Amino acid sequence: MTTNTRSTTNVNAAAVATFLIFGMNGLVFASWAARIPAVTEALSLTSGQMGTLLLCTAVGSLLALPSAGWVVGRIGTANTVRVAGIVAGAAGAAIAFSLMAASVPGTAVALFFFGIGIGLWDVAQNIEGADVEHRLKRTIMPQFHAAFSGGAFLGALIGAGLSQLGVGLPEHLLVIAAIAVTLALTVPKYFLPHEVEEIHDGGAAAEKGPTAWRDGRTLLIGVVVLGATLTEGAGNDWIAKAAVDGLGASESTGALLFALFVLAMTVMRFLGGKAIDKFGRVNVLRASMAAAAVGLALFVFAGNVILAGVGAALWGIGAALAFPMGMSAAADDPKHAAARVSVVSTIGYIAFLAGPPLLGYLGDHTGIHLALLAIGAPILLALLLAGVAKPLPPK
């Protein structure tokens, strides 16, 4: 009885710690994303040039993601989050100083290292979250991602408020960087105690390849998650800018539309676990992708801020659950959960980070508002492939 109680206490503490780490990750990301229009103005960049800067973040993460499972296998999820937090925090400070100097090259280099930190952080928190969900034996991954969305919503509101007050982005980023490093160093001490030994096996499997990277179901889940994360990433990076360019909205109004998108995601992720348990993972995934498609179309073709807000909210509802459901699907087999979560996370974050910069290039020709329609294709592909997320039968 004592052992069981202690084990339950450890898992619950790990769940709270994981929730906080997801939330801080969202706050850090949104503190940057919500004020992209300010960066564009401060550095006198076009949408395509801004896309190049965003691509620097993507390149950093894409270099970090394939090795993230190996890193977690060597030092554990807790230490990986600590390292990632230090890297992301230092990069955030470097972004701030580069903006003060109006240095595009300096900002680009800082964003590259920011991408490395965020990439390591994302994979580690998802592996920890999948382990916690497995041990709790109930759907909780959407709530972890709700914490990310909640942190992003808070970051967007802070960004909108500081923009309205005339507070510069550099000062904003310096404070956020300090908070991020502090939490990343302290909170992971409550993570589950066996992650190094357990995930090391998964990391080795992922390194050798046959278990995860050659598993057909895992790769198809990755394609579904790719479509879902492109949907989420495009909204995170471009809703504020598209509102300013396409609707003639102010920077603060654009940030508020982004906040509405994130709020819708947050609420849906908090409620999504019960919906998944009631209607099934595949049905909820299909409904999510359909809602994202309708919301995207409404946002793009809306002629006023009110309709655009409705579209942004529906878009956020649709984008909310697909990624956490993909993580849960990848972790259905506990023996290979770490390696497969790492693979699906890597595929998903390729779209999340690399897709939005490419939309920026397209936006130079069509306007970023219309360029967003390009994500309709991967949304439909994810809708068609949703059946691969069906839970595996118990062994």
Rank of each mutant, 00 (worst) to 15 (best):
T2D: 09
T2Y: 01
N4C: 09
T5C: 08
T5D: 11
N10E: 09
A15S: 14
A15R: 02
V16I: 10
V16K: 02
V16C: 05
V16L: 12
A17W: 04
T18L: 00
F19V: 01
I21P: 15
I21Y: 09
V28C: 11
V28L: 13
F29R: 15
P37F: 15
T40A: 11
A42Q: 11
A42F: 07
G48Q: 03
G48C: 13
G51D: 02
T52W: 12
L54M: 14
A58H: 07
S61N: 13
L63R: 10
P66V: 08
T80P: 05
G85I: 00
G89N: 11
G89L: 09
A90M: 13
A91H: 10
A93Y: 05
A94E: 11
S103F: 07
P105S: 06
G106W: 04
A110I: 06
G117H: 01
I118Y: 00
G119H: 04
G119Q: 01
A124Y: 05
E133R: 00
K137F: 03
H145K: 03
A146E: 15
F148A: 08
S149V: 08
A152N: 12
G155K: 02
A156W: 14
L157E: 15
L157P: 12
L165R: 12
L165V: 07
I176L: 10
A177P: 03
A178F: 03
L183I: 01
L185H: 05
E195D: 10
E195R: 04
I199V: 14
G203T: 01
A206E: 12
E207S: 13
T211G: 11
T211W: 07
A212L: 06
W213A: 15
L220I: 12
G222N: 06
V223K: 13
V224F: 05
L226R: 06
A228C: 03
E232V: 00
D237R: 00
A240M: 07
A242G: 04
G248T: 01
G248R: 03
S250H: 01
E251G: 10
S252M: 14
L256T: 08
F261Y: 13
L263I: 12
M265H: 04
T266E: 05
V267C: 06
F270K: 00
F270V: 09
F270M: 07
K274L: 03
A275N: 09
D277S: 10
F279R: 09
N283I: 01
S288M: 02
A290C: 03
A293Y: 08
G303F: 09
N304K: 02
L307G: 08
A308K: 13
G309Q: 15
G311I: 05
G318P: 04
A320Q: 03
A320P: 08
A322D: 01
M325V: 05
G326I: 10
S328K: 03
R340M: 02
V343T: 07
V343D: 01
Y349L: 11
Y349N: 08
A351H: 10
L353Y: 08
L353G: 10
P357W: 05
L358G: 12
L362K: 02
L362D: 02
L362Q: 04
I368C: 12
L372W: 15
L373S: 14
I375P: 09
A377M: 10
P378G: 04
I379V: 07
L380G: 06
A382S: 07
A386E: 02
V388C: 00
V388W: 05
P391L: 06
P394Y: 09
